[in-house]
Deep mutational scan, measured.
Amino acid sequence: GEDLPLPPGWSVDWTMRGRKYYIDHNTNTTHWSHPLESGPSSG
């Protein structure tokens, strides 16, 4: 998808195989999909 801006506290990194993933430092979790690309989340 597009390179959307990341929310505060997020960063992007790549695996050893070159796969892009996103790090949420607020909750110390990692995600394969961009936080703003996922569907609407409630709460």
Rank of each mutant, 00 (worst) to 15 (best):
G9D: 03
P5T: 09
G43P: 13
V12L: 06
P7S: 01
H34N: 05
T15E: 04
R17T: 15
K20F: 04
S38H: 14
W10D: 01
E2A: 13
N26S: 09
W32R: 04
S11I: 05
P35G: 02
E2Q: 11
P40W: 11
R19V: 15
T27E: 03
S41F: 09
Y22G: 00
S33L: 13
T29N: 03
S41I: 12
G9C: 02
S41M: 11
S38L: 12
T29Y: 02
E2H: 11
T29L: 05
T27S: 07
N26L: 07
L6N: 01
H34K: 04
P5V: 08
S33Y: 14
G18V: 03
T27P: 00
H25I: 04
G43Y: 11
W14A: 06
T29Q: 07
K20R: 08
V12M: 10
G1F: 12
D24H: 05
P35S: 03
V12I: 12
L4W: 10
K20Q: 06
S41D: 12
S11M: 06
N28M: 09
S41G: 14
S38T: 11
N28W: 06
R19A: 09
N28P: 00
D24N: 10
S38E: 10
N28I: 02
S11F: 05
T29I: 06
W14I: 09
R17N: 15
S38G: 12
N28S: 07
W32K: 03
E37G: 11
G9T: 01
P7T: 01
K20L: 08
T15N: 08
R17D: 15
Y22M: 00
S33G: 08
W14F: 14
I23G: 00
D13C: 15
S38A: 14
G39R: 14
G43I: 12
I23V: 09
Y22L: 00
S33R: 14
D24W: 02
D13K: 12
G39S: 13
H34Q: 03
T27K: 05
S11G: 06
P5H: 09
H31L: 04
S41T: 13
S42F: 12
E37T: 11
H31I: 03
G9H: 04
H34S: 05
N26F: 06
G18K: 04
N26P: 01
L4A: 09
N28K: 08
S38P: 11
G18L: 04
G39Q: 14
G9L: 02
G43K: 12
W10F: 02
S41E: 11
T30M: 13
L6M: 06
V12N: 02
P40H: 12
L6A: 01
G18T: 00
I23Y: 08
D13H: 15
P35R: 02
P40K: 11
W10T: 01
S41N: 11
H25R: 06
T29H: 04
E2D: 12
I23R: 07
L6Q: 02
R17I: 10
K20M: 07
L4Y: 09
Y22Q: 00
P35Y: 02
G18P: 02
P35I: 02
D3Y: 09
N26T: 08
W32I: 04
L6P: 14
T27H: 05
D13Y: 14
W10M: 01
G43S: 12
V12D: 03
H25E: 06
W32A: 04
S33F: 14
L36N: 08
L36V: 06
N26Q: 06
G1K: 12
T30N: 08
G18C: 05
L6S: 01
E2S: 12
H31K: 04
G43W: 11
G1H: 13
P40Y: 11
K20V: 09
H34W: 05
M16F: 13
G18H: 04
W14P: 04
G1V: 13
V12S: 06
W10R: 00
P40Q: 12
I23P: 00
G1R: 12
H34Y: 06
P40E: 10
L36F: 09
H31S: 08
M16E: 15
P7W: 02
E2L: 10
R19I: 15
N26D: 04
L36A: 09
R19C: 15
G43F: 13
T30A: 10
Y22H: 01
S42L: 12
T27V: 01
D3L: 10
P5W: 09
L4I: 10
W10E: 01
V12P: 04
Y21N: 00
H34I: 06
V12E: 07
S38V: 11
M16L: 14
I23E: 02
W32E: 04
G43V: 12
G1A: 11
W14G: 03
T27F: 04
W10V: 02
G43D: 11
H34G: 03
V12C: 08
N28D: 08
P40T: 13
N28A: 07
T15Q: 02
M16T: 15
T30W: 15
P35V: 02
T29F: 03
K20A: 05
D3W: 09
R17Q: 15
I23N: 02
L36H: 07
E37A: 14
L4S: 09
K20E: 05
D13L: 09
G43L: 12
P35D: 04
P5G: 09
H25W: 10
I23S: 03
M16C: 14
V12F: 10
I23C: 00
R17G: 15
R17V: 10
G39V: 12
L4T: 09
H31N: 04
Y21Q: 03
P5S: 09
T30D: 04
P35F: 03
P7L: 04
P8D: 10
D13N: 14
S38R: 11
S41Y: 08
I23L: 06
W14Q: 07
L4K: 10
N28V: 04
E2N: 11
T30K: 14
P8K: 08
P5Y: 08
P5A: 10
Y21A: 01
H31G: 01
P8H: 08
L6V: 05
W32P: 02
G43N: 12
H25Y: 06
D24I: 01
T29R: 06
S41V: 11
